[in-house]
Design a protein around this nucleic acid. Structure first.
Length: 489
RNA sequence: GCCCCCAUCGUCUAGAGGCCUAGGACACCGCCCUUUCACGGCGGCGGCAGCGGUUCGAAUCCGCUUGGGGGUACCA
């Protein structure tokens, strides 16, 4: 078997989309599995839509996911350059070769004219294919067009009979009648190659062995195969993976939720979680496993496991998986990951003293089983850093005859306690349980409400300890006052 | 319009003619654990799009219908 060389070839016209990331991932896994090369190529021939920021977004997204490339921008190999706009001379050469071979020709039809004729054909119920008006242009006609100031495109002279078969690794043999492919443009009037042309030239010159890409490219493949054949080149292996859909089964887009890889980072997803989830969209290893490390994915990934049906992006499952990875990671790393979110919420500062960091780490540890995404950390832990604000449920838990008594009594006892420890707290609550003759829960609910302003928090002892004695006393007394106030109403 | 792809629980999927009274995961619903919320454990709900074939036997093969997706650009 020849050396495996695959590529991810995005066009830099926006952020890195999760669909693109999934294509990159499959290519990357394929390369790593077979010990081949993963190449990154930037398809920036659309001068209008391509931007520098988008190129950076692609780098950032891939890097965040840990998808490193063996050749590409910033990593020169023997097959560069890796930006198509830097390869124009190459495309020009092969376009000329096709013209010389009689397999391509200049076309002076304007977009407006083409559009009109296309509409006419459509209206007549016919396939909207190019009518070859410019195929046999005489020298005089060419001169006339030039005099009119027309700038030509170059069209490929497609086969008119027979059929082109795409032998696809995931879909099997797909047959296209050649009569359905018309003389498509290979070089635009601005001198840029079109996608179908550049992709063939580059994939050949870069010695790509397998073209793994989205299913939206399947219909273009016969054009590309005809180009390979006209140029006398070997056709690579194709594998078209299905699309990623939104919950309404249409192509995934912004209105379905986040589609940008970096958006997931900003929303508090771990890269390994997104990676794992993406791997499962359209690929599976066996009937039972869902969780895979990157190493396992590399070991298990083959095209056999790729399914043909489109996959709906399931935010709920991604979220569950993110929770799994949050629980799996170390508290230290989790703390580091949470810090930017807490900083952004204004709950902590960028620089923390060792004591502050130690406390933060304990707080994060308490949240580890409660987080689905990192960005939840701020809301879940705000009362550890700021004054309490009672929410509705907390107010309810405070509104009882027992509450003020319990809170005041507890405050008094805690103040005089020799040690503020979990054991001491447990003993104290046990004592109060007897004194007030109530179950533990009856005690805890108002205390939690007073101390956190919430009905939900970590275990009460852990919470009290993390808030600290002085602050606890303050909050208990404030809570007692609030409770009385509520009763008076 | 024409061409191509796809079709198993709500979702991702296992299933490559008898192992399927269709398995797993997420979601959902119960129960257990429990000071709340999570986590965890246990259980439940729920599907082979329809119709015709082929076969002793079909989720699995074939055809049609229906539904969804993609392409049909001087976008990629």
């Amino acid at each position: 078997m020849q050396r495996v060389r695959v590529r991810f070839a995005p066009s830099p016209t926006g952020y890195l989309h999760v669909g693109g990331a999934r294509t990159a991932l499959f290519n990357w896994l394929f390369a790593r599995h077979y010990g081949g090369d993963f190449i990154l190529r930037i398809e920036d021939t659309d001068l209008v839509r391509s931007t520098e920021e988008s190129v950076q977004a692609i780098f950032d997204g891939l890097t965040w996911l840990g998808l490193d490339w063996d050749e590409g921008p910033g990593k020169d190999g023997d097959h560069g350059p890796y930006y198509q706009t830097e390869r124009l001379e190459i495309y020009r050469r092969y376009a000329q070769e096709l013209i010389d071979k009689g397999r391509a020709y200049y076309c002076y039809c304007s977009p407006e004219e083409l559009d009109q004729r296309r509409k006419e054909l459509l209206a007549a119920g016919q396939a909207p294919r190019y009518d070859r008006k410019c195929l046999g242009l005489s020298a005089a006609e060419v001169e006339r067009y030039k005099a009119e100031g027309r700038v030509p495109v170059i069209r490929f002279k497609a086969a008119e009979v027979g059929r082109t078969i795409v032998d696809d690794l995931v879909r099997g043999k797909v047959v296209f009648e050649n009569e359905v492919v018309d003389d498509f443009v290979i070089v635009k009037s601005d001198g840029m190659p079109t996608y179908n042309f550049a992709v063939v030239v580059d994939d050949h010159l870069m010695e790509i062995s397998h073209v793994i890409r989205g299913e939206d490219h399947l219909s273009n493949t016969p054009k590309q195969i005809q180009l390979y054949e006209a140029l006398g080149w070997e056709v690579p292996q194709f594998a078209h993976i299905s699309m990623i859909l939104g919950p309404d089964k249409t192509k995934l887009s912004k209105r379905h939720g986040a589609t940008s890889v970096i958006q997931y980072k900003d929303d508090g997803y771990l890269p390994e979680a997104l990676l794992n989830y993406l791997a499962l969209l359209g690929w599976s290893y066996n009937a039972t496993d869902n969780l895979f490390t990157k190493e396992q994915l590399i070991e298990y990934f083959t095209l056999d496991g790729v399914s043909k049906n489109p996959a709906v992006f399931d935010y709920a499952k991604l979220q569950w998986m993110n929770g799994v990875y949050i629980r799996q990671t170390s508290v230290e790393r989790l703390t580091d990951l949470c810090r930017p979110f807490l900083e952004q919420a204004g709950l902590i500062t960028r620089d923390l003293s060792p004591a502050e960091l130690a406390r933060l780490t304990k707080i994060v540890a308490e949240m580890q089983t409660r987080l689905k995404t990192l960005n939840e950390i701020a809301d879940l832990t705000s009362y550890f850093f700021t004054d309490v604000e009672y929410d509705e449920q907390a107010l309810k838990n405070l509104r009882s005859e027992l509450a003020p008594q319990v809170l005041e009594r507890l405050a008094a006892d805690l103040e005089g306690m020799p040690e503020f420890t979990q054991a001491a707290l447990e003993a104290e609550f046990a004592k109060l349980m007897e004194e007030f003759d109530v179950k533990l829960g009856k005690l805890i609910h108002p205390v939690r409400a007073a101390v956190t302003g919430r009905a939900v928090s970590p275990g009460i002892y852990e919470t009290l300890l993390l808030i600290g004695r002085d602050e606890v006393l303050k909050r208990l007394r404030a809570g007692a006052a609030k409770a009385k106030e509520l009763l008076a109403e």
